[in-house]
Design a binder for these strands. Structure first.
Length: 467
RNA sequence: UGCCGCAUAGCUCAGCGGUAGAGCAGCUGACUGUUAAUCAGCGGGUCGUAAGUUCGAAUCUUACUGCGGCAGCCA
């Protein structure tokens, strides 16, 4: 056996008359008096291969073991299908059974399982239509992300997962420590704290899982010019929503000699190109999502590829919201952050496609964003999209040493902790910009899936780390 | 973390004070090509856990646990 085999995707593209071997997992089996039909899928494509077994061809005891979930190989001749539903089918002549799946206890059935239930059997759910399609789209989108940046000369930078700077300010962090000792007890594992002084810990100081690679990757933009990260990110927030994970994958491009305008151009070009790539390469999967998950998916994706994003300043957005006549739960006045309901109204109702909002009040944005001449706003930009909300958050970075230093002091942050970040402005500073994009949110947008826990193989959320 | 909702067969759900139901799945059989196959029959449940109200609780009350939705935090 070798991975260089004929997959079901290959088989479906062959012409009738050839002899083939089809490996895969059984979706369903239908029996008639003289003939049995098996839907076989190996994940290589959305479409199943129909295997037809004439009565008497295979021993009854073998055929009986072919049930939903079983892993088998059928060999035989590929023939033109006499019935509607598929162009070709495999006439099964011999069978190898690799793994049975007891029908009485195999949890997947051919119809009607909720996503909530499937999350409990996340080790098996990828064998179904929806999760097979999600993972193929996720894979293609990952490839498209790298392709996009590589074709434009961006260097992929592997920023650290463990960080000792607790100064990133992007949210609650998971501590990384060896001071906590696990002890097996009759009641289960208990933790014991060996020491409370970080000086005696593994790194000799407090360490955490990264909440963003941005500060790190800025160093490489100021040397390699155009760079990006694509890796896991961790947030210890107690967030219980369909769009937050404790562990997720983030994409963060960073560009030297680039201002907020260039940053927006990249964000827009990036999103449109990745969507276009997935539209070109995941047709059958997207057709399925369009039919079963989100009726306007294809229309929306094609619309985004073919039309630009709307661009608004925060001040303009507030004016639109005030003039909307909508009865919002939270009032919107200049200076407070846009609430989910405001973002949704802007992108879903008012504009009807992705919107980039820029120039937010400095008080509601991070310390490192470039201050505008008005002294009130910073060069921040958020990309808001229908159904998802905030897909991208980015900014032009403050590259003036004195301005950045006074901003850090103003916010009561420890200047010394930022010594290397400030060095970037001290030695050869350059205008630079970048953004962060939550990869799972992009996959949600691409598939129409409503819960972020269903677009990652094994989700980590508060109270959930199974598998 | 706050507010709201849900928890009944393997799955999806109905029942909402009087002692447990359907569809699908499973099992047995029928049917010469099905494609969420169809048809007939059979088996399957301490109604999330604990306490309370009541002659009587799946049904009403409270707490807890789990899950989901909305909000906040953000990507």
């Amino acid at each position: 056996m070798d991975y260089r085999r004929t997959t079901i995707k290959d088989i479906l593209a062959k012409t009738p008359g050839e002899r083939v071997e089809a490996y895969g997992w059984v979706k369903t089996k239908r029996d008639s008096k003289g003939v049995s039909f098996v839907q076989l899928n190996d994940g290589s494509c959305f479409t199943d291969l129909q295997v037809v077994i004439e009565a008497g061809t295979l021993p009854d005891e073998d055929l009986k073991r072919v049930s939903t979930g079983a892993c088998v190989m059928f060999a035989g001749e590929l023939v033109e299908s006499p019935a509607a539903g598929q162009a070709v089918e495999l006439r099964g002549e011999t069978i190898t059974i690799y793994g049975e799946a007891d029908p009485a206890s195999y949890p997947l059935q051919k119809k009607g399982a909720s996503f909530e239930f499937l999350r409990e059997i996340a080790h098996l759910r990828v064998r179904g239509n929806t999760f097979g399609a999600v993972m193929r789209v996720r894979n293609r989108a990952s490839y498209a992300v790298h392709r996009f940046f590589q074709e434009r000369g961006f260097n992929w930078i592997h920023t650290p997962i463990i960080t000792a700077s607790d100064c990133e300010g992007a949210g609650a962090m998971f501590a990384v420590s060896t001071l906590l000792e696990a002890e097996p007890t009759p009641e289960g594992t208990q933790f014991r704290l060996k020491d409370t002084d970080p000086a005696n810990d593994f790194f000799g100081k407090p360490a955490y899982l990264t909440v963003s690679g941005q500060l790190n990757v800025e160093t490489h933009a100021l040397g390699l010019t155009n760079v990006y990260t694509f890796g896991p990110t961790f947030r210890a927030e107690n967030s219980n929503t369909p769009r937050h994970l404790a562990e997720f994958w983030m994409i963060e491009p960073e560009m030297a000699f680039c201002d907020i305008e260039g940053d927006m151009n990249l964000a827009e070009e990036f999103v449109r190109e990745v969507i276009g790539d997935v539209l070109d390469h995941c047709g059958p999967d997207l057709d399925f999502f369009n039919k079963r998950i989100e009726p306007e998916l294809l229309q929306t994706l094609e619309h985004v590829v073919n039309s630009g994003f709307e661009r608004l300043t925060y001040t303009e957005a507030i004016k639109l919201l005030e003039a909307s006549g909508e009865n919002f739960e939270f009032p919107c006045d200049w200076g407070s952050d846009l609430q989910s309901e405001h973002e949704r109204w802007l992108t879903e109702k008012k504009i009807g496609r992705p919107v980039i909002v820029t120039d937010y009040p400095k008080e509601i944005k991070a310390f490192y964003m470039y201050g505008n001449d008005d002294g009130q706003t910073v060069r921040a930009m958020d990309v808001l999209v229908p159904r998802i909300g905030e897909l991208i958050g980015g900014s032009q970075r403050e590259d003036r040493l004195d301005v950045l230093e006074s901003r850090i002091v103003e916010l009561g942050l420890p200047l010394e902790a930022y010594w290397w970040y400030l060095d970037l402005r001290r030695f050869g500073s350059a205008p630079h910009s970048g953004f962060g994009l939550g990869f799972e949110r992009l996959v949600m947008y691409l598939t129409g899936m409503k819960n972020i826990r269903d677009v990652i193989p094994f989700h980590r959320t508060p109270g959930q780390a199974d598998f």
